[in-house]
């Protein structure tokens, strides 16, 4: 009895330390973002929204924020379409070379991201895509496709393929089978894959650093150069906005997952 309560206390203690360790910096940043001081100090001498105003007024922040939004949305859509199609082919298909294709698609998760960045920079240099909207969307799509592929594949492998076979025998051609049967069954996974892709794209720094130019950069790149230069609490405001955005998206994602998790599994 006594021993188990000691273990219990230790376990709770360890969890508490971990949580503080992970969450405290975030809380610190959140607090500082509302500071009235002109530089990063803790605790703040007073409160104001000046840094948030600055995010939307200063062109280096508002421009890069909108650039990011312009990249994140098409990236999410593109990665979802490609990732879903790939997942259906890889899980349901029966053709040689599936393992190789999976490897290529998943490579951006495994290859050190700085290597990916350098390679993309090199390639885009030849294609004159560095610092262009198209270049960012392409690079981010490549990085986010693996997330969609793995989330959708996991969901697909829990859906019994007899539903698709039954639909085929009832007279539905393959595209109709996907649209009417498979898509509704894996829609929660597709949506959560898309949200994940968007969060990853929103947060992406390394590859974006490589392919940014002074004329087109993303907010993460702007944050990076800001941190390297003179530091004022605007960075805390931007960081807080990013944090809240990611939290929101992940919250939606878990709601989707819980709400839609019932369908698609074989009964009986």
């Amino acid at each position: 009895m006594k021993q188990s309560s000691i273990w219990r206390a230790l376990r709770i203690g360890l969890c508490a330390v971990t949580i503080v360790f992970l969450v405290a910096p975030m809380l610190l940043v959140l607090t500082i973002s509302f500071s009235s001081a002109q530089f990063l100090t803790f605790p703040p001498p007073g409160w104001s929204l000046q840094w948030y105003r600055n995010v939307f007024n200063a062109p280096e922040w508002s421009d890069t924020l909108f650039n990011t939004i312009e990249v994140v949305i098409p990236t999410g859509v593109l990665a979802t379409v490609i990732g879903t199609a790939a997942a259906v082919g890889l899980v349901r298909g029966n053709f040689p070379g599936r393992a190789a294709i999976t490897g290529v698609l998943m490579a951006p998760l495994v290859v050190p991201i700085i290597v990916v960045g350098a390679a993309v920079y090199e390639l885009f240099g030849r294609l004159s895509l560095n610092g262009t909207w198209v270049g960012f969307v392409l690079a981010h799509t490549m990085i986010t496709v693996p997330y969609v592929v793995s989330i959708v594949s996991a969901s697909l492998s829990t859906v019994n393929d007899q539903y698709e076979k039954a639909a085929l025998t009832l007279g539905a051609p393959p595209w109709t089978v996907f649209r009417r049967i498979l898509f509704p069954l894996i829609a929660p996974a597709i949506l959560s894959g898309m949200l994940f892709a968007m969060v990853v794209s929103f947060d992406e720094l390394i590859v974006s650093l490589f392919i940014s130019t002074p004329t087109f950069k993303l907010i993460t790149v702007q944050m990076w150069s800001d941190v390297m230069g003179d530091v004022n609490p605007t960075i805390a405001a931007v960081g807080s906005l990013l944090f809240v955005f990611s939290l929101l998206v992940l919250g939606i994602e878990s709601m989707v997952r819980r709400g839609g998790g019932s369908g698609g599994h074989i009964q009986g």
Binding site: Y163, G263, G264, I266, Q267, G268
Partner: peptide, 15 residues
Amino acid sequence: RDIGVVFQNYALFPH
């Protein structure tokens, strides 16, 4: 093919 098939696990579309 226009052939009716009844599967072992029924395969009724759950949605």
